[in-house]
Each structure stands twice: as structure tokens, then as C-alpha cells.
Amino acid sequence: MNPKATISCSCGCMFQAAFQNGSLDTPPQCPQCKAIMDKTSWKSLWDSMASLADFNYHILKWNSERNEPRMLVPAITVSTLGD
């Protein structure tokens, strides 16, 4: 599983940041306005993506070891309210 976060920048641009080929040391940068996410915010988002990857890893493991249902979570969608 390769968790990706869809980021909505204040300039109106939407882009993705990937866990698998990303780096905790390099916060995402908006491709349009070049704003860079705060390192504390990026760490929090990184931890969330890591938790989702761990969850799916364990679901696959438990499916093969204990024959538990294989119920993966490919995406979590969060709706936010506009200002």
C-alpha cells in the first residue's frame, strides 16, 4: 500500500504527497505558489500515512496467518468546510 495525501493549498491548488517515495525531512511544496508545509504539520500528516500503511500491512498479515477477512483501507476521505 502506498498512502498518498491530497493537499489543498490556500492558493486553490490541489496536489498529492506520497508516503512511499516521500521523506519526513522534506515537507511538500505547492507546485503552483511554492508554499511549503510547516514541518510540524508535515510530521503529523506523515505519522497518519504511516499508521494507515501499518494498518493495511497487518490486515494482510492476519489474513494469511489467521484467515481473518482481508478488509484493506485504500483511502480515507475527509471533507472540510470552507471558511
Rank of each mutant, 00 (worst) to 15 (best):
P3F: 00
P3I: 00
K4V: 02
K4M: 00
A5I: 08
A5W: 05
I7W: 07
S8V: 09
S8R: 13
S8A: 12
S8D: 15
C9I: 00
C9E: 12
S10N: 14
C11L: 03
G12R: 04
G12P: 13
G12A: 11
C13I: 03
C13F: 08
C13A: 15
M14A: 14
F15V: 04
F15N: 04
F15K: 02
Q16C: 09
Q16K: 07
Q16H: 04
A17M: 11
A17H: 03
A18H: 09
A18F: 06
F19Q: 01
F19R: 14
Q20S: 15
Q20M: 15
Q20C: 15
G22T: 13
G22N: 02
G22D: 12
S23W: 10
L24I: 02
L24R: 12
D25K: 13
T26A: 03
P27N: 03
P28L: 01
P28Y: 02
Q29F: 01
Q29Y: 00
C30M: 01
C30G: 09
C30Y: 00
P31A: 06
P31R: 00
Q32W: 04
C33M: 03
I36P: 00
M37S: 11
D38S: 01
K39E: 10
K39F: 00
S41V: 00
S41N: 13
W42T: 03
W42A: 00
W42H: 10
K43Y: 02
K43L: 01
S44E: 06
S44T: 14
L45Y: 05
L45S: 04
D47K: 06
D47G: 10
D47P: 11
S48P: 06
M49A: 01
A50I: 01
S51L: 11
S51Y: 04
S51E: 14
L52Y: 02
A53D: 14
F55S: 10
F55L: 10
N56P: 13
H58E: 15
H58I: 07
I59L: 14
I59C: 15
L60K: 15
L60V: 13
K61C: 06
K61I: 07
W62I: 14
W62F: 14
W62G: 09
W62Q: 05
N63R: 05
S64Y: 01
S64N: 06
E65L: 10
E65N: 07
E65M: 10
R66T: 09
N67D: 12
N67Q: 15
E68R: 09
E68V: 13
E68P: 08
P69H: 09
P69R: 08
P69A: 12
M71I: 12
M71L: 12
L72R: 12
A75W: 01
A75M: 04
I76T: 15
I76H: 11
T77E: 08
T77M: 01
T77Y: 00
V78A: 12
V78E: 05
S79T: 09
S79E: 14
L81V: 10
L81P: 05
D83L: 08
D83G: 02
D83C: 03
